[in-house]
């Protein structure tokens, strides 16, 4: 198949970006979106042009490295990651717009690559548990209730790709933060730091310059892992409870 790509080109962080058109022929509908970009880059390289920079790693939907806005929708609207999106989702001769995530705390580094270390700093502010090292404890040493561990597991599927921020009209990272909070708050291992964690992570989220959540729901719509809005309410419950516990900052 044949497509016309309109891609955001930006040489470096403080450069002015713009959309550039590239016709691309010989695209197979079995190609993933990133393989299609590889094909474009081969052509660009042969023509001595600068290839399009984009982030990727596992290419199997589990690492969260990839992610672009396709025709205005983060990850392209097929409820999967950009790497798991296939060209069969597009019509022959389609024009496809490709842009980087846009948010104040996600500066564009080059073309489609943005700096998402703000999310890492939110994790550093509490998205972990403290455990003694030594020999591994018995798998069943700490019982975890089935319902809660299922919830924890669902929340833990968040790969931190940042699509929620890219789609949120407020530019909020609340879905991401709440997935991490819910994941750890549902498990016995997460209890000791539960309330200092939520305070710390929210403080960091706000300090990074992400917007505030107003429950619009665009985040869940684009989340490749289908993290639901209930997760945000879980964070809010923990945040409200934390006001009554003298923990954390």
């Amino acid at each position: 198949m044949k497509v016309t790509l309109r891609i955001w080109r930006q040489a470096k962080q403080d450069a002015q970006g713009r959309m550039v058109s590239y016709p691309l022929d010989g695209v197979s509908e079995d190609m993933s979106f990133l393989e299609m970009l590889d094909l474009l880059n081969e052509h660009l390289t042969k023509q001595n042009e600068e290839p399009v920079a984009f982030d990727h790693d596992c290419r199997e939907g589990i690492c969260g490295a990839c992610g672009v806005v396709i025709n205005g929708i983060a990850h392209g609207g097929e409820h999967t990651t950009t790497c798991q999106l296939h060209m069969r989702s597009f019509a022959d001769n389609a024009t496809i717009d490709i842009e980087p995530w846009q948010a104040g705390p996600f500066p564009v580094i080059k073309d489609l690559v943005v700096d998402r270390t703000a999310l890492d700093r939110i994790i550093q502010a509490g998205g972990f548990i403290s455990a003694n090292t030594g020999s591994a404890p018995d798998a069943h040493a700490v019982p975890a209730p089935k319902r809660e561990s299922d919830k924890a597991f669902d929340a833990a599927t968040c790969i931190g790709c940042g699509a929620c921020v890219a789609a949120c009209p407020n530019g909020s990272a609340m879905l991401f933060t709440s997935a991490k909070i819910t994941h750890l708050a549902m498990l016995p291992q997460g209890q000791p730091e539960r309330y200092s964690r939520v305070k710390g992570m929210i403080a960091q989220h706000d300090e990074e310059g992400f917007g505030g959540c107003t429950n619009i729901g665009e985040c869940s719509e684009v989340c490749p892992k289908g993290i639901p809005m209930e997760t945000i309410s879980q964070l809010n419950r923990d945040l409200i409870s934390s006001l009554f516990k003298g923990t954390g900052k």
């Binding site: 806005v69 025709n71 205005g72 104040g104 009209p169 530019g171 909020s172 310059g209």
Partner: peptide
Amino acid sequence: RRWSSAGVSGRYVSQK
């Protein structure tokens, strides 16, 4: 906060 994260207008070139 919305303006400083998502911008004041025209965040993406192509409209969803």
